[in-house]
Design a protein around this nucleic acid. Structure first.
Lengths: 207, 207
DNA sequence: TTCATTCTTGATCAGATGGTCAAGAACGGT
DNA sequence: ACCGTTCTTGACCATCTGATCAAGAATGAA
Protein backbone atom coordinates (compact mmCIF):
# COMPACT_ATOMS: atom_id res chain seq x y z
CA UNK A 1 0.00 0.00 0.00
CA UNK A 2 1.50 3.34 -1.02
CA UNK A 3 0.31 5.00 2.14
CA UNK A 4 1.34 8.50 3.09
CA UNK A 5 3.37 8.33 6.26
CA UNK A 6 1.05 9.51 9.01
CA UNK A 7 1.10 9.91 12.76
CA UNK A 8 -0.14 6.61 14.18
CA UNK A 9 -3.62 6.65 15.63
CA UNK A 10 -2.47 4.88 18.75
CA UNK A 11 -1.14 7.45 21.21
CA UNK A 12 2.18 6.61 22.76
CA UNK A 13 3.82 8.27 25.69
CA UNK A 14 6.46 9.90 23.53
CA UNK A 15 3.77 11.18 21.25
CA UNK A 16 1.76 13.01 23.87
CA UNK A 17 4.88 14.37 25.51
CA UNK A 18 6.20 15.82 22.26
CA UNK A 19 2.87 17.11 21.01
CA UNK A 20 2.41 18.87 24.31
CA UNK A 21 5.88 20.38 24.14
CA UNK A 22 5.29 21.52 20.58
CA UNK A 23 1.99 23.20 21.40
CA UNK A 24 3.46 24.94 24.42
CA UNK A 25 6.37 26.26 22.42
CA UNK A 26 4.11 27.20 19.53
CA UNK A 27 1.84 29.22 21.79
CA UNK A 28 4.77 31.35 22.85
CA UNK A 29 6.03 31.84 19.34
CA UNK A 30 2.74 32.34 17.52
CA UNK A 31 1.40 34.72 20.13
CA UNK A 32 4.44 36.92 19.85
CA UNK A 33 5.07 36.88 16.12
CA UNK A 34 1.75 35.90 14.60
CA UNK A 35 1.21 33.00 12.25
CA UNK A 36 3.12 34.36 9.31
CA UNK A 37 5.81 35.88 11.48
CA UNK A 38 6.66 32.60 13.15
CA UNK A 39 8.86 29.93 11.65
CA UNK A 40 8.80 26.21 12.16
CA UNK A 41 12.48 26.35 13.03
CA UNK A 42 11.73 28.77 15.84
CA UNK A 43 9.15 26.48 17.35
CA UNK A 44 11.31 23.40 16.88
CA UNK A 45 14.26 25.09 18.55
CA UNK A 46 12.09 26.21 21.46
CA UNK A 47 10.92 22.70 22.26
CA UNK A 48 14.22 21.01 21.49
CA UNK A 49 13.15 19.03 18.46
CA UNK A 50 14.61 18.97 15.00
CA UNK A 51 12.46 20.51 12.34
CA UNK A 52 11.71 17.24 10.53
CA UNK A 53 10.92 15.68 13.87
CA UNK A 54 8.44 18.39 14.64
CA UNK A 55 6.88 17.95 11.23
CA UNK A 56 6.50 14.29 12.00
CA UNK A 57 3.93 15.21 14.63
CA UNK A 58 2.29 18.08 12.78
CA UNK A 59 2.67 17.70 9.03
CA UNK A 60 2.11 21.37 8.31
CA UNK A 61 2.81 24.57 10.19
CA UNK A 62 -0.85 25.43 9.95
CA UNK A 63 -1.79 22.20 11.71
CA UNK A 64 0.07 23.34 14.79
CA UNK A 65 -1.68 26.67 14.68
CA UNK A 66 -5.14 25.15 14.32
CA UNK A 67 -4.54 22.61 17.07
CA UNK A 68 -3.45 25.45 19.30
CA UNK A 69 -6.56 27.49 18.60
CA UNK A 70 -8.84 24.53 19.14
CA UNK A 71 -7.13 23.64 22.37
CA UNK A 72 -7.96 27.09 23.73
CA UNK A 73 -11.40 27.74 22.30
CA UNK A 74 -13.24 25.81 24.99
CA UNK A 75 -11.39 27.63 27.76
CA UNK A 76 -12.33 30.85 26.08
CA UNK A 77 -16.04 30.23 26.32
CA UNK A 78 -16.10 28.67 29.77
CA UNK A 79 -16.27 31.80 31.96
CA UNK A 80 -19.08 33.38 29.95
CA UNK A 81 -20.94 30.09 29.80
CA UNK A 82 -20.77 29.98 33.59
CA UNK A 83 -22.81 33.16 33.94
CA UNK A 84 -25.66 32.05 36.18
CA UNK A 85 -29.06 33.59 35.54
CA UNK A 86 -30.35 32.68 38.99
CA UNK A 87 -27.62 34.27 41.08
CA UNK A 88 -27.18 37.94 41.88
CA UNK A 89 -26.54 39.90 38.65
CA UNK A 90 -23.83 42.23 39.90
CA UNK A 91 -22.09 39.38 41.70
CA UNK A 92 -22.22 37.25 38.58
CA UNK A 93 -20.82 39.99 36.39
CA UNK A 94 -18.16 40.67 38.99
CA UNK A 95 -17.15 37.05 38.93
CA UNK A 96 -17.14 36.93 35.16
CA UNK A 97 -14.96 40.01 34.81
CA UNK A 98 -12.67 38.72 37.50
CA UNK A 99 -12.34 35.37 35.77
CA UNK A 100 -11.54 37.07 32.48
CA UNK A 101 -8.89 39.14 34.21
CA UNK A 102 -7.41 35.99 35.69
CA UNK A 103 -7.11 34.53 32.21
CA UNK A 104 -5.47 37.74 31.07
CA UNK A 105 -2.94 37.62 33.85
CA UNK A 106 -2.25 33.89 33.71
CA UNK A 107 -2.42 33.24 29.99
CA UNK A 108 -1.72 36.47 28.17
CA UNK A 109 -0.24 34.48 25.29
CA UNK A 110 -3.55 32.78 24.66
CA UNK A 111 -5.27 36.14 24.57
CA UNK A 112 -2.72 37.49 22.12
CA UNK A 113 -3.06 34.43 19.95
CA UNK A 114 -6.76 35.10 19.56
CA UNK A 115 -6.30 38.80 19.14
CA UNK A 116 -3.93 38.13 16.29
CA UNK A 117 -6.31 35.75 14.64
CA UNK A 118 -9.25 38.16 14.87
CA UNK A 119 -7.16 41.12 13.82
CA UNK A 120 -6.20 39.26 10.67
CA UNK A 121 -9.86 38.74 9.88
CA UNK A 122 -10.19 35.35 11.58
CA UNK A 123 -9.12 33.27 8.58
CA UNK A 124 -9.09 30.09 10.65
CA UNK A 125 -11.92 30.49 13.14
CA UNK A 126 -14.55 32.38 11.20
CA UNK A 127 -17.11 29.61 11.64
CA UNK A 128 -16.51 29.55 15.37
CA UNK A 129 -17.39 33.24 15.64
CA UNK A 130 -20.61 32.94 13.69
CA UNK A 131 -21.50 29.66 15.35
CA UNK A 132 -20.88 28.71 18.96
CA UNK A 133 -19.65 32.12 20.00
CA UNK A 134 -22.61 34.00 18.56
CA UNK A 135 -25.03 31.52 20.07
CA UNK A 136 -23.50 31.78 23.51
CA UNK A 137 -23.40 35.57 23.43
CA UNK A 138 -27.04 35.76 22.41
CA UNK A 139 -27.99 33.38 25.17
CA UNK A 140 -26.17 35.35 27.83
CA UNK A 141 -27.37 38.65 26.42
CA UNK A 142 -30.89 37.41 26.99
CA UNK A 143 -30.01 36.66 30.59
CA UNK A 144 -28.68 40.15 31.12
CA UNK A 145 -31.68 41.67 29.41
CA UNK A 146 -33.96 39.74 31.72
CA UNK A 147 -32.01 40.93 34.75
CA UNK A 148 -32.62 44.50 33.66
CA UNK A 149 -36.29 43.88 32.95
CA UNK A 150 -36.71 42.40 36.40
CA UNK A 151 -35.17 45.48 37.93
CA UNK A 152 -32.24 43.50 39.31
CA UNK A 153 -29.77 45.35 37.09
CA UNK A 154 -29.76 48.86 35.68
CA UNK A 155 -30.74 49.01 32.01
CA UNK A 156 -27.78 48.23 29.75
CA UNK A 157 -27.19 47.13 26.18
CA UNK A 158 -26.21 43.51 26.91
CA UNK A 159 -24.13 42.63 23.85
CA UNK A 160 -22.15 45.83 24.10
CA UNK A 161 -21.61 45.22 27.77
CA UNK A 162 -20.13 41.86 26.89
CA UNK A 163 -17.98 43.46 24.19
CA UNK A 164 -16.80 46.05 26.68
CA UNK A 165 -15.88 43.42 29.21
CA UNK A 166 -13.89 41.52 26.60
CA UNK A 167 -12.24 44.65 25.34
CA UNK A 168 -11.17 45.98 28.70
CA UNK A 169 -10.03 42.72 30.24
CA UNK A 170 -8.13 41.52 27.20
CA UNK A 171 -6.57 44.93 26.78
CA UNK A 172 -4.24 44.18 29.67
CA UNK A 173 -2.93 41.16 27.80
CA UNK A 174 -3.06 42.22 24.17
CA UNK A 175 -1.80 45.73 24.79
CA UNK A 176 0.32 44.71 27.74
CA UNK A 177 3.41 46.36 26.33
CA UNK A 178 1.61 49.66 26.16
CA UNK A 179 0.10 49.26 29.60
CA UNK A 180 3.48 48.49 31.09
CA UNK A 181 5.14 51.35 29.27
CA UNK A 182 2.68 53.77 30.80
CA UNK A 183 2.11 52.23 34.21
CA UNK A 184 5.57 50.92 34.92
CA UNK A 185 5.17 48.18 37.51
CA UNK A 186 1.93 46.26 37.33
CA UNK A 187 -0.38 45.79 40.31
CA UNK A 188 -2.86 43.10 39.38
CA UNK A 189 -5.25 43.72 42.22
CA UNK A 190 -5.30 47.43 41.53
CA UNK A 191 -6.17 46.67 37.93
CA UNK A 192 -8.93 44.33 39.04
CA UNK A 193 -10.46 46.92 41.35
CA UNK A 194 -10.26 49.70 38.77
CA UNK A 195 -11.71 47.61 35.96
CA UNK A 196 -14.58 46.33 38.08
CA UNK A 197 -15.37 49.86 39.21
CA UNK A 198 -15.38 51.27 35.71
CA UNK A 199 -17.40 48.49 34.10
CA UNK A 200 -19.92 47.92 36.87
CA UNK A 201 -20.31 51.39 38.31
CA UNK A 202 -23.97 52.30 38.39
CA UNK A 203 -25.19 48.90 37.29
CA UNK A 204 -26.64 48.25 40.71
CA UNK A 205 -30.29 49.18 40.28
CA UNK A 206 -31.68 52.07 42.31
CA UNK A 207 -34.24 50.73 44.68
CA UNK B 1 31.30 59.97 -6.94
CA UNK B 2 30.26 56.44 -6.06
CA UNK B 3 27.02 57.62 -4.55
CA UNK B 4 24.24 55.26 -3.52
CA UNK B 5 21.21 55.99 -5.62
CA UNK B 6 18.84 57.83 -3.33
CA UNK B 7 15.48 59.52 -3.54
CA UNK B 8 16.16 63.16 -4.42
CA UNK B 9 15.68 65.66 -1.64
CA UNK B 10 13.68 67.97 -3.85
CA UNK B 11 10.07 66.85 -3.85
CA UNK B 12 8.47 66.55 -7.24
CA UNK B 13 4.81 66.14 -8.04
CA UNK B 14 5.26 62.55 -9.13
CA UNK B 15 7.08 61.84 -5.92
CA UNK B 16 4.37 62.99 -3.57
CA UNK B 17 1.68 61.34 -5.64
CA UNK B 18 3.42 57.99 -5.61
CA UNK B 19 4.52 58.13 -1.99
CA UNK B 20 0.96 58.92 -1.05
CA UNK B 21 -0.37 56.03 -3.13
CA UNK B 22 2.18 53.67 -1.63
CA UNK B 23 1.32 54.62 1.93
CA UNK B 24 -2.40 54.29 1.27
CA UNK B 25 -1.97 50.86 -0.23
CA UNK B 26 0.45 49.82 2.49
CA UNK B 27 -2.00 50.78 5.21
CA UNK B 28 -4.57 48.43 3.76
CA UNK B 29 -2.12 45.60 3.36
CA UNK B 30 -0.16 45.95 6.60
CA UNK B 31 -3.29 46.38 8.69
CA UNK B 32 -4.76 43.19 7.32
CA UNK B 33 -1.73 40.93 7.21
CA UNK B 34 0.71 42.48 9.65
CA UNK B 35 4.26 43.46 8.84
CA UNK B 36 5.65 40.00 8.26
CA UNK B 37 2.51 38.78 6.58
CA UNK B 38 2.58 41.48 3.94
CA UNK B 39 4.72 41.38 0.82
CA UNK B 40 6.19 44.21 -1.15
CA UNK B 41 4.64 42.74 -4.27
CA UNK B 42 1.21 42.96 -2.68
CA UNK B 43 1.62 46.62 -1.88
CA UNK B 44 3.10 47.39 -5.27
CA UNK B 45 0.24 45.65 -7.04
CA UNK B 46 -2.31 47.51 -4.96
CA UNK B 47 -1.00 50.92 -5.93
CA UNK B 48 -0.18 50.00 -9.50
CA UNK B 49 3.57 50.29 -9.31
CA UNK B 50 6.21 47.74 -10.19
CA UNK B 51 8.14 46.36 -7.25
CA UNK B 52 11.44 48.01 -8.17
CA UNK B 53 9.59 51.25 -8.71
CA UNK B 54 8.07 51.07 -5.27
CA UNK B 55 11.49 50.32 -3.81
CA UNK B 56 12.76 53.43 -5.53
CA UNK B 57 10.61 55.49 -3.16
CA UNK B 58 11.07 53.38 -0.06
CA UNK B 59 14.34 51.46 -0.14
CA UNK B 60 13.20 48.85 2.35
CA UNK B 61 9.87 47.31 3.27
CA UNK B 62 10.41 48.45 6.80
CA UNK B 63 10.74 52.07 5.67
CA UNK B 64 7.19 51.98 4.36
CA UNK B 65 5.97 50.55 7.61
CA UNK B 66 7.74 53.13 9.74
CA UNK B 67 6.59 56.01 7.58
CA UNK B 68 3.07 54.72 7.92
CA UNK B 69 3.27 54.52 11.69
CA UNK B 70 4.76 57.96 11.96
CA UNK B 71 2.13 59.44 9.67
CA UNK B 72 -0.56 58.21 12.05
CA UNK B 73 1.01 58.74 15.45
CA UNK B 74 0.09 62.41 15.63
CA UNK B 75 -3.53 61.72 14.73
CA UNK B 76 -3.55 59.12 17.41
CA UNK B 77 -2.68 61.54 20.16
CA UNK B 78 -4.80 64.45 18.98
CA UNK B 79 -8.17 63.58 20.55
CA UNK B 80 -6.70 62.85 23.97
CA UNK B 81 -4.53 65.93 23.79
CA UNK B 82 -7.69 67.94 23.16
CA UNK B 83 -9.18 66.99 26.53
CA UNK B 84 -9.93 70.37 28.05
CA UNK B 85 -9.47 70.70 31.81
CA UNK B 86 -11.65 73.80 31.99
CA UNK B 87 -14.76 72.44 30.32
CA UNK B 88 -17.38 70.15 31.83
CA UNK B 89 -15.78 66.78 32.69
CA UNK B 90 -18.55 64.49 31.50
CA UNK B 91 -18.99 66.51 28.33
CA UNK B 92 -15.26 66.38 27.65
CA UNK B 93 -15.09 62.64 28.19
CA UNK B 94 -18.15 62.21 26.02
CA UNK B 95 -16.49 64.14 23.27
CA UNK B 96 -13.26 62.22 23.64
CA UNK B 97 -14.96 58.84 23.48
CA UNK B 98 -17.04 59.98 20.56
CA UNK B 99 -13.97 61.21 18.70
CA UNK B 100 -12.22 57.89 19.31
CA UNK B 101 -15.25 56.06 17.98
CA UNK B 102 -15.22 58.23 14.90
CA UNK B 103 -11.62 57.23 14.29
CA UNK B 104 -12.60 53.62 14.75
CA UNK B 105 -15.40 53.90 12.22
CA UNK B 106 -13.53 56.00 9.70
CA UNK B 107 -10.04 54.56 9.95
CA UNK B 108 -10.28 51.03 11.28
CA UNK B 109 -7.17 50.09 9.33
CA UNK B 110 -5.11 52.61 11.27
CA UNK B 111 -6.39 51.14 14.50
CA UNK B 112 -5.53 47.63 13.37
CA UNK B 113 -2.08 48.73 12.29
CA UNK B 114 -1.35 49.94 15.80
CA UNK B 115 -2.96 46.96 17.42
CA UNK B 116 -0.72 44.70 15.41
CA UNK B 117 2.36 46.66 16.33
CA UNK B 118 1.55 46.62 20.05
CA UNK B 119 0.52 42.99 19.98
CA UNK B 120 3.90 42.10 18.55
CA UNK B 121 5.57 43.87 21.45
CA UNK B 122 5.92 47.23 19.70
CA UNK B 123 9.28 46.53 18.06
CA UNK B 124 9.15 49.78 16.10
CA UNK B 125 7.41 52.27 18.40
CA UNK B 126 8.63 51.27 21.83
CA UNK B 127 10.18 54.70 22.45
CA UNK B 128 6.94 56.40 21.48
CA UNK B 129 5.04 54.49 24.14
CA UNK B 130 7.47 55.27 26.91
CA UNK B 131 7.93 58.84 25.73
CA UNK B 132 5.25 61.10 24.28
CA UNK B 133 2.39 58.70 24.95
CA UNK B 134 3.26 58.15 28.59
CA UNK B 135 3.73 61.86 29.12
CA UNK B 136 0.41 62.73 27.58
CA UNK B 137 -1.44 60.06 29.51
CA UNK B 138 0.04 61.23 32.79
CA UNK B 139 -0.87 64.80 32.00
CA UNK B 140 -4.48 63.96 31.21
CA UNK B 141 -4.71 61.55 34.13
CA UNK B 142 -3.84 64.49 36.35
CA UNK B 143 -6.66 66.46 34.80
CA UNK B 144 -9.15 63.68 35.48
CA UNK B 145 -7.87 63.27 39.00
CA UNK B 146 -8.37 66.97 39.61
CA UNK B 147 -11.91 66.77 38.27
CA UNK B 148 -12.67 64.07 40.81
CA UNK B 149 -11.00 65.97 43.63
CA UNK B 150 -13.07 69.03 42.81
CA UNK B 151 -16.22 66.96 42.96
CA UNK B 152 -16.99 67.55 39.31
CA UNK B 153 -16.56 63.88 38.47
CA UNK B 154 -17.15 60.74 40.50
CA UNK B 155 -13.94 59.18 41.81
CA UNK B 156 -12.26 57.03 39.20
CA UNK B 157 -8.82 55.57 38.52
CA UNK B 158 -7.81 57.93 35.70
CA UNK B 159 -5.23 55.85 33.86
CA UNK B 160 -7.44 52.81 33.85
CA UNK B 161 -10.34 54.91 32.65
CA UNK B 162 -8.20 55.97 29.73
CA UNK B 163 -7.18 52.36 29.08
CA UNK B 164 -10.82 51.33 29.18
CA UNK B 165 -11.80 54.01 26.72
CA UNK B 166 -9.06 52.92 24.36
CA UNK B 167 -9.90 49.27 24.77
CA UNK B 168 -13.63 49.62 24.19
CA UNK B 169 -13.50 52.08 21.31
CA UNK B 170 -10.73 50.32 19.45
CA UNK B 171 -12.42 47.00 20.00
CA UNK B 172 -14.93 47.87 17.31
CA UNK B 173 -12.10 48.27 14.82
CA UNK B 174 -9.57 45.69 15.93
CA UNK B 175 -12.13 42.98 16.66
CA UNK B 176 -14.52 44.17 13.99
CA UNK B 177 -14.77 40.75 12.44
CA UNK B 178 -15.94 39.30 15.73
CA UNK B 179 -18.32 42.18 16.39
CA UNK B 180 -19.87 41.79 12.96
CA UNK B 181 -20.11 38.03 13.30
CA UNK B 182 -22.13 38.45 16.47
CA UNK B 183 -24.11 41.60 15.72
CA UNK B 184 -24.75 41.12 12.05
CA UNK B 185 -25.43 44.58 10.60
CA UNK B 186 -23.65 47.42 12.34
CA UNK B 187 -25.45 50.47 13.67
CA UNK B 188 -22.79 53.05 14.46
CA UNK B 189 -25.02 55.35 16.46
CA UNK B 190 -26.31 52.48 18.54
CA UNK B 191 -22.72 51.53 19.29
CA UNK B 192 -21.91 55.10 20.22
CA UNK B 193 -24.86 55.34 22.61
CA UNK B 194 -24.13 51.97 24.21
CA UNK B 195 -20.42 52.64 24.66
CA UNK B 196 -20.99 56.08 26.14
CA UNK B 197 -23.55 54.68 28.54
CA UNK B 198 -21.32 51.86 29.71
CA UNK B 199 -18.17 53.91 30.13
CA UNK B 200 -19.68 57.05 31.61
CA UNK B 201 -22.56 55.66 33.60
CA UNK B 202 -22.34 56.90 37.14
CA UNK B 203 -19.45 59.25 36.50
CA UNK B 204 -21.69 62.25 36.98
CA UNK B 205 -21.06 63.22 40.59
CA UNK B 206 -23.94 62.99 43.03
CA UNK B 207 -24.82 66.46 44.23
C1' DT C 1 16.48 -11.87 21.60
C1' DT C 2 13.53 -10.72 17.75
C1' DC C 3 11.37 -7.68 14.79
C1' DA C 4 7.66 -4.70 13.47
C1' DT C 5 6.44 -0.25 14.72
C1' DT C 6 7.55 4.27 16.05
C1' DC C 7 10.75 8.01 16.32
C1' DT C 8 14.61 10.96 14.72
C1' DT C 9 17.53 13.39 11.57
C1' DG C 10 20.94 15.18 7.86
C1' DA C 11 20.50 16.37 3.38
C1' DT C 12 17.87 18.47 0.15
C1' DC C 13 14.25 20.80 -2.64
C1' DA C 14 11.02 24.19 -4.49
C1' DG C 15 8.84 28.32 -4.02
C1' DA C 16 8.39 32.80 -2.06
C1' DT C 17 10.29 37.12 -1.07
C1' DG C 18 13.22 41.27 -0.08
C1' DG C 19 16.25 43.64 -2.48
C1' DT C 20 19.74 44.98 -6.55
C1' DC C 21 21.22 46.55 -11.06
C1' DA C 22 21.83 48.45 -15.37
C1' DA C 23 19.56 50.39 -19.00
C1' DG C 24 15.99 52.76 -21.00
C1' DA C 25 11.84 56.21 -20.80
C1' DA C 26 9.77 60.32 -19.25
C1' DC C 27 10.19 64.81 -17.36
C1' DG C 28 11.17 69.64 -17.14
C1' DG C 29 14.05 73.72 -16.99
C1' DT C 30 16.66 76.29 -20.53
C1' DA D 1 15.29 71.00 -29.46
C1' DC D 2 18.51 69.91 -25.84
C1' DC D 3 20.16 67.49 -21.90
C1' DG D 4 20.74 66.59 -17.01
C1' DT D 5 17.67 64.78 -13.64
C1' DT D 6 14.08 61.90 -12.23
C1' DC D 7 11.36 57.88 -12.92
C1' DT D 8 10.42 53.09 -14.42
C1' DT D 9 11.27 48.33 -15.35
C1' DG D 10 12.72 43.41 -16.71
C1' DA D 11 16.00 40.37 -15.29
C1' DC D 12 18.33 38.64 -11.66
C1' DC D 13 20.20 37.23 -7.01
C1' DA D 14 20.61 35.54 -2.17
C1' DT D 15 18.21 34.10 1.48
C1' DC D 16 14.65 32.23 4.08
C1' DT D 17 11.41 28.82 4.95
C1' DG D 18 7.92 25.18 4.64
C1' DA D 19 8.10 20.69 3.44
C1' DT D 20 10.03 15.98 1.78
C1' DC D 21 12.71 11.78 1.90
C1' DA D 22 15.41 7.96 2.80
C1' DA D 23 17.90 5.85 6.10
C1' DG D 24 19.19 4.93 10.63
C1' DA D 25 18.06 4.66 15.92
C1' DA D 26 15.05 3.70 19.65
C1' DT D 27 11.07 1.38 21.50
C1' DG D 28 8.33 -2.22 23.14
C1' DA D 29 5.38 -6.40 22.71
C1' DA D 30 6.19 -11.40 21.91
Amino acid sequence: MPKAQAIPARKTRIQSRNQQAILDAALDVFSTFGFRGSTVDQIAAKCGLSKPNLLYYFRRKEDIYRALLERTLANWLAPLAALNAEADPVEELTRYISAKLDMTFERPEASRLFANEILHRAPHIGPFLKGPLKTLVEEKAAVIRRWSAEGRLAPVEPVHLIFSIWAVTQHYADFGVQVDAILGKRDKEAIRAAVLAILLRGLTPVR
